[in-house]
């Protein structure tokens, strides 16, 4: 591709958009061990994680680049003891702060600190509709009960809540109950995301890949619930890959709406970018954005 003019695969000129959102993988540490984790199979070590101040610098550069929202994720972001400081940096940079968490590691006191630091919105993951399923998928006993407790605190503090339901062959048939649970937890929004088959999920795809019939049923459930719950619950749906004629465009076009920054500062166009051979990515510690 010529440097002075971006082109698509057919040679048509393309105007690259400014990315609007950034996924900040604060750490790859996590108490859960979900078999579809979006983190790479080679996890980053705790000792290579960027400091809160380094993240602060990245957030300011991101805001200057036109990023509006930061999704603080992991791993489990609550595994970072300095999470509150990181949130404060993100708000100081003027970003909308979305905390993506399993809830494990959050106490009521910590949530109140995060509230004062300026978290705008909390996204709580749900591995299943009961302890049996959720703790099995997450590989963490007691995780489900803890999560329900955290959801209650989130409601008491008043954070807007999104329930993040990752669905796959093992739990997709319980989607109606997951949606019901989101309503009961007081969520404004549920993200029903079918597992994306990269990295860990690809290793476990035999157990996780939904059947075509499950995918069709999930679509019907979503459509029915969207109509019934209009104005109460927003339902975002990420359908299954592999059941369509053509693959989806990755991330709505690499780097055009969002980017990923790994715990050690690698800047990626998507979670799975590093798995593509022969591509090199810059580290924001060495190559600043301005």
């Amino acid at each position: 591709m010529k440097q002075d003019r971006a082109e698509d695969i057919r040679g048509n000129p393309v105007t690259p958009g400014l990315p609007m959102a950034m996924l900040a993988e604060l750490t790859h540490r996590c108490p859960l061990a979900c078999p579809y984790c979006s983190n790479p199979v080679e996890l980053s070590r705790a000792s290579s994680e960027m400091t809160a101040d380094e993240w602060g610098s990245v957030f300011r550069q991101a805001a200057d680049l036109g990023i509006l929202q930061v999704h603080l994720s992991g791993g489990e972001p609550a595994s970072r003891r300095d999470l509150t400081e990181i949130v404060r940096h993100a708000r100081d940079a003027g970003l909308y702060v979305n905390l993506i968490t399993s809830g494990i590691g959050l106490t009521e006191a910590r949530l109140r600190e995060l509230d004062h630091a300026g978290v705008d919105h909390v996204q709580l993951s749900l591995q299943g509709i009961n302890a049996e399923m959720a703790d099995w998928i997450g590989g963490y006993k007691g995780g489900f009960d803890r999560k329900m407790q955290v959801a209650e605190w989130i409601g008491q503090i008043g954070f807007p809540l999104t329930v993040n339901a990752v669905v796959h062959r093992q739990n997709m048939d319980r989607l109606p109950e997951m949606i019901e649970m989101a309503v009961n937890l007081g969520a404004r929004r549920i993200e029903v995301a079918t597992v994306q088959f990269h990295g860990w999920a690809d290793l476990n795809r035999k157990t996780l890949m939904p059947t075509m019939a499950q995918a069709m049923q999930a679509r019907a459930v979503v459509n029915e619930a969207r109509a019934r719950l209009r104005g109460r619950l927003v339902i975002d749906y990420v359908p299954a890959d592999h059941h369509a004629k053509f693959p989806k465009s990755c991330m709505g076009g690499w780097g055009s709406t969002g980017l990923n920054v790994t715990p050690e500062g690698l800047v990626l166009p998507c979670h799975a970018a590093q798995t593509i051979p022969n591509l090199d990515f810059d580290n924001v510690r060495e190559v600043p954005w301005r």
């Binding site: 400014l18 805001a63 200057d64 680049l65 036109g66 509006l68 929202q69 909308y96 979305n98 705008d120 919105h121 996204q123 807007p160 999104t162 404004r188 929004r189 993200e191 975002d236």
Partner: peptide, 11 residues
């Protein structure tokens, strides 16, 4: 950066 007004909401 874009010189516009935006409504920011969850995601």
């Amino acid at each position: 950066v874009r010189g516009i007004r935006v409504l920011q909401a969850p995601e």
